[in-house]
Nucleic acid binder design. Sequence first.
DNA 1: ACAAATTGGAGAGCACTGCTCTTGACGTCG
DNA 2: CGACGTCAAGAGCAGTGCTCTCCAATTTGT
Lengths: 220, 220
Amino acid sequence: MNAGRTARDRARAELTQEIKDEARRQLATDGAQLSLRAVARSLGMASSAIYRYFPSRDDLLTALIIDAYSSLGAAVEASTGDSPRAQWRSACHAVRNWALDHRHEYALIYGSPVPGYRAPQDTVAPAARVPLVFVGVAGAAGAPDSDVPPVVHAQADALRPALPNDLPAGALARVLLAWTQLFGMISFELFGQLVGSADPADEFFAYAVDQMADFVGIAR
Amino acid sequence: MNAGRTARDRARAELTQEIKDEARRQLATDGAQLSLRAVARSLGMASSAIYRYFPSRDDLLTALIIDAYSSLGAAVEASTGDSPRAQWRSACHAVRNWALDHRHEYALIYGSPVPGYRAPQDTVAPAARVPLVFVGVAGAAGAPDSDVPPVVHAQADALRPALPNDLPAGALARVLLAWTQLFGMISFELFGQLVGSADPADEFFAYAVDQMADFVGIAR
DNA sequence: ACAAATTGGAGAGCACTGCTCTTGACGTCG
DNA sequence: CGACGTCAAGAGCAGTGCTCTCCAATTTGT
């Protein structure tokens, strides 16, 4: 990878990375609004120079989004457990911990799409990594089938070619449900919707994870 | 209410409303970024005049947020059904339909907090209306208790004084879970996270609503 | 009814934003 | 070595939130 041939290429790659790093840093401190000029200022360069590396602010955002998906995906894929049930728990907590450690990046990928919103195709593959882990765990656990409406069944069938296993439609639907549930809970916690109810949420989260494991049918 | 004594008072109330209406309109068309100047321009007044009515952009946003919570709360409270199960379904679909009809307002209240994020106390009461409806339905359905970890049990007990009934801790925890689930699914649908999987989501949503009703223990 | 006090609106201005264009310097390659 | 491609910088445009001052209108107190 470091065989970027010319010195110019290497410098370019490095600066691109530095811009992203600084942008991430500002995202973490100053919140959601990311200013190209502030990034440039902090890097000691003219604001116009940034545009040599990212054609627009949205492109920088998109790059950060893809990186965030990858980072989260890697964290979840790295989670392990002795049993399928333990794997399930581990993966769920990996998502939450990553979210708590990268609040603003989480908001970036799972929050409301801030700008004019366009989901470039480059984001869907990295975005799919996390749910695929859950599909994998459910498959390894032998999650059972269950009744689903015909339309949902058809959607599950259409989805199957992209999956790492042959999860039955009923199980797949429940995994997808659990995934939206997981996301909903983490978002509520991060965005402050459940202050005053289940707050702190650690225990409630663990409880919910177990409930979802039961719901999907991952043996205890 | 229209006894705003002086003509000035009435004019002020009207203009305040007009500003919010125009802001909502721009929110619906131009997306998330709301420009005070654009609102003023569209209303034919100087941008500085807006500040007589809302001290800052964030205050306008907050007003819109409160209105959105109220609008959603009213819509859900107005939903009806013959049986508890039908009420449950009706309430869930009321949330989704409102969200689909007011995408940007939904993003405003349930999306990532865009600015420096401050949740003024005025927002929590209207925000609680929707989950309270679900608690009410679960109570009317006689949702059964279930095992929950001690910490969660304690949180449920602490929450009970604010509730319209004496839902047991196990049922309350499951209702809260279903609420985060509902929110997660609607957000995924609106924010485009499940394009390519369960899309269109109508059937999947109905399926999920039923699953959650079973989970909470609302008789079929 | 008249003067005093309060209020709403307009305009200029500050500091900031994303983005474009031009200019000049540097590195790379034929 | 010369030509080309690349990069950084600066100025500038249009837009933003917000503040301040000034003036007209309305409400209020006497």
